[in-house]
Amino acid sequence: MADQEEQNMIDIYVMGRRYRVPEGLTIMTALEYAGYKYVRGCGCRGGFCGACSTVYRKEDDYKLKMDLACQTAVEDGMFLVQLPFVPALREAYEIEDVDPGEKDNVLLDLYPEIARCVSCNTCSKACPQDIEVMDYVQAALRGDVERTAKLSFDCLHCGLCSIRCPADIKHYHLAQLARRLKGRYLDLDSSELEKRIKELEEGIYTEEYEEMLKMTIDELKKCYEERKFEEEG
């Protein structure tokens, strides 16, 4: 315990209860330090998956802040709550039926509530990835799939935009649809992808894959640790 006492300790409040934790931890590790165990809503711990949405307030700030728990350092006097999941509706569609070249209103048709956007910008302020969320919703409304896809490229699907939206827009699902439409209809076909799919179909990895299936956990771990990356270029 001596080590810990040398560290600067701060107070945080988790769902109203005070805990003393070392400074410098992320919100996620601080919660674990305080004794909470993540069963779900933990995710990658690396800021890539968007599973650990968290809402907090700093002691003297009137604003509620949103962030990813694995990417944000705890501060003294922080009030915290974890959001396990955002249950926003995602629409179903057949990708072959929604060609934005033929249909002007593909995005509006599947997500009509974007017509309720009041341009308050609350979504952009909530975004832990600093995406211009409002701007891509506006682009979606005017039928600009390309711009919606481009502006939303860094989205992790944490859902904080949708939690905050006064118009009940499902920004992140809308954006994913736009990116899928871009991939399917707007981008040029990649010759490399075609080549690789052909190789896969011809069984280039089949032998290696079957070998891996026979490995023990330890062998797999060793294999993973010794993996080599292809050089770029």
């Binding site: 956007c117 009041v118 341009s119 308050c120 409002m134 506006q138 409304l141 005017r142 006064p166």
Partner: peptide, 19 residues
């Protein structure tokens, strides 16, 4: 930004003037 297409008329409705 999309203007909202129809003017919101209520005396207290500032939100719909934002766009």
């Amino acid at each position: 930004y999309c203007c909202g297409a129809v003017q919101s008329l209520a005396t207290d409705d500032i939100m719909h003037q934002i766009a």
